[in-house]
Design a protein around this nucleic acid. Structure first.
Lengths: 331, 331
DNA sequence: CTGGTCCCGTCATACGTATCACTTCGGACG
DNA sequence: CGTCCGAAGTGATACGTATGACGGGACCAG
């Protein structure tokens, strides 16, 4: 038979009523159905290849056991990892995930993607302001990598700690004059990175810091880095992103500066780029999969009526070949 | 009122029956409902913020207007682009997309992800063998970037043409001794690349080709490239992937070879890596978004009862700084 | 005045599931 | 012996939508 079997077909095959099938398959039969009957039902279901119709179940239950993951883009491995972590936890709880790539600043009406507004129980949104979620107001939401002051429960990276680790690493090598190639993106994570960096440098005796902004792509970063290096002469350049660091490499080489001999460079994020560059990039690895996993855990808690606490995940300093003592330092 | 309005609420507000609301909102009212009434219904729906319940609609229609996109991983920008292209076309036709990351070789039971087997109308699968879809047998499917001999309609890249373009470019520069760093992955696209490369080199007078395999990651490619370069001495090294090319860069530098002075290197795919490397990588850009878009178009055609033709999308040669005439060639 | 045709809508129903209220039946208990 | 109770299961219903089968005027022709 080519048509899909329903619970009624299973009932008929097992010689019981449809309600019994439903009870058994939902696992709520203890004390209501005899073990023998339950087994018979399961056998019939198995034999017919029965799979419950999700649409009917959702209609009946008023819940879809599906969560929407809102990300700015899927063209970055980072969000792929977030998805993976979230989906793993979701699947373990019988939830599905639908991805909704929502470029920041794009109105929902302009979006080329179909948002299944109602077919979801909750929202997991990464790297955006909670106000952007206006469209989903009222839906239980957990924010990832976003401003914790937004009101919603948040799971974040400790980017401030990451920045402090980088500055500590560089200061330990003898650096005092720092440059910051900041991402020209108004997101919490970058604001936090900038503030932490400024603070950490200010805490150093003789610490100095110059700052420039750039878009997150290689050519733009190259130009910004060249301009910055042409003015002040930092011995270490901290970049908000690995792609920016790639641009900095090019600018340095263009100016005849050796990395790390004449200029130390650091990135942030440790995407696949960090190991491909030469020299390999010192950066901070952010546990993106864990971010997704913890976020989904918090969301499930929220859906279950809990009040999940916001939390912060530490990054890991990956010290590699792009950092060294500044030229002229004692060995 | 906080509860979601149903079509019945709209009917009451507009002073008509529920069926009328359904007819109007489905756009099937011509000749059945007067323009004035239709307008009133639309106004009431708008005013109440009515959105049809998808679960109910799906239950009634027996179709979900949702398609499953099966990809090996989301940790690559490539599949993000495929998704984007597919989702754009889908949304324009009122379809949604659910992503199912299915690492090749992993059985469905082992998969950490929840496959919504029945909640879908069709499958779009990228970069895998059609046999892998066993789980979804019987569902209308279109394969992307996969073996066209599989039986299902296919949308592919003309990787053979891309390889020929690379060889032509290098031959034009004067190269005759080629190396191929092949991806050790048993997928159609890599088999096809290898075959096309061998053929193109064989067609050259004096053309010679050595070949080695490697996993698609930077450290592995570095080792493989070093071993290959230590034996034969090709003047041009064609890599199956940009990440492999990054490893080749490192190996070359480790052996004291300058790129492109002593060794020309090419990649494949033009992910964000190509522009970040130094020198920038000559590679073939594959239109991943177009792949997704054409695939979805074919799938919609298939779902509509059509018989979509398989087709092939040309890549674009991106000649950049990693290729030059071989050492000792006439200028 | 009757019968036929449109036009504009409404009624009723089915999709497949989960669950509440109810029945049946054998035994335990007073 | 009558009553109550738990075990084991069934019947009926509702979720919200889409749609085929009807209905009731209005208008026109005969």
């Amino acid at each position: 038979m080519s048509i899909r079997p329903t619970s009624r077909d299973v009932a008929q095959a097992a010689g019981v009523s449809q309600s019994t099938v439903s009870l058994v398959l939902a696992g709520k039969w203890t004390g209501r159905v005899s073990p023998a009957t339950a087994e018979a039902v399961r056998a019939a279901a198995e034999q017919l290849g029965y799979r419950p119709n999700l649409a009917a179940r959702n209609l009946r239950l008023g819940s879809t056991r599906t969560v929407l993951l809102v990300v700015p883009t899927l063209s970055s491995p980072f969000f792929g990892a977030v998805y993976t972590g979230a989906a793993r936890v979701a699947a373990a709880h019988g939830f599905g995930i639908v991805v909704y790539p929502w470029p920041d600043g794009v109105g929902p009406a302009d979006s080329p993607f179909a948002a299944p507004h109602d077919a979801i129980d909750g929202v997991l949104a990464s790297s955006m302001a909670v106000e952007s979620l206006g469209e989903f107001a009222g839906t239980p939401a957990v924010m990832l990598d976003s401003d914790p002051a937004g009101g919603a429960p948040t799971v974040n990276f400790d980017v401030a700690g990451g920045m402090r680790a980088l500055v500590g690493h560089l200061a330990g090598l003898g650096h005092r004059r720092f440059g910051h190639l900041a991402a020209a993106v108004d997101e919490w994570t970058f604001r936090d990175r900038g503030a932490a960096l400024a603070e950490a440098v200010a805490a150093l005796p003789d610490g100095r810091l110059v700052r420039a902004e750039t878009a997150i792509d290689v050519p733009a970063a190259r130009v910004a880095a060249r301009d910055l290096l042409a003015g002040a002469r930092p011995t270490a350049l901290l970049c908000d992103d690995d792609q920016i660091a790639a641009g900095a490499y090019k600018a340095a080489r263009g100016l005849g500066l050796e990395v790390p001999g004449d200029l130390s460079v650091t990135g942030f994020d440790d995407v696949l780029l960090a190991e491909a560059l030469e020299p390999e990039l010192t950066t901070v690895r952010l546990p993106a999969e864990a971010l997704g996993a913890h976020g989904m855990t918090a969301l499930l808690d929220l859906l279950g009526g809990g009040r999940p606490r916001s939390r912060s995940l530490a990054g890991e300093l990956m010290a590699r070949g792009s950092t060294a003592p500044p030229a002229g330092a004692a060995p």
